[in-house]
Amino acid sequence: MGFDLDIISKRGLQFFGKISASISHEIKNVLAVLNENAGLLEDLVLIAEKGGTINHERFKSLAGSMKKQVQRADLIVNNMNRFAHSVDEFLYSIDLCETLGLVTSLSVRFADMRGVELCPLYSNDRINITTNPFLLENLLWCCLDFATTVTGEGKTVRIIVGEKEDRAWIEFAGLQKLTSMAPDIFPSERERDLIRALDAEIETNTGAGQFIVKLPKKINL
């Protein structure tokens, strides 16, 4: 394998921009909800000051909603921070399940827009691999992005992770429409660039409605 550094500018920056824009969009949504809840609290206080009745339950529910939004924002910012740090080092040992969890969280909004649920079906056992974390995140994001376009009636992408000898693997299943759409559009040139850089493989099983990404436990430069 030859590591093509151009891939960072060619594919990586595009990915970084897309995720950053998505995160800013999510934060805007949280701010919008907080803004309306705070505005409504203000309205209700003004009414009370003018002699109207105070609905304590409504106050409590608005405060609860605001706390929930703060927790949501905290999760978004934590994910953003983890994502930003994935470019800190070129190559290092990561827990595949943890990385997949992060990419799944970053993909939820895109999946929601398509009415698709992402369903991780793996334990929290560590599967350590030495790789380029940022490019791996990019590849996994592309896989999830594609998978959400080929789900069947259930509109669910099942994600399963495992390891065998010197390889780790991730299975994306529940993709009943894979037959008609692959292999012409997936993996595209973008994914093929990432697969080469990560020394990975993608195995598609259209009959079973699934594809598997196989990764080396350690990539060599």
Partner: peptide, 16 residues
């Protein structure tokens, strides 16, 4: 809007 808490609060404020 798919943010239910946003539209419900906004609807209440408009109604006021």
């Amino acid at each position: 809007d798919d943010e239910e808490e946003l539209v419900t609060a906004m609807a209440e404020r408009l109604s006021l």
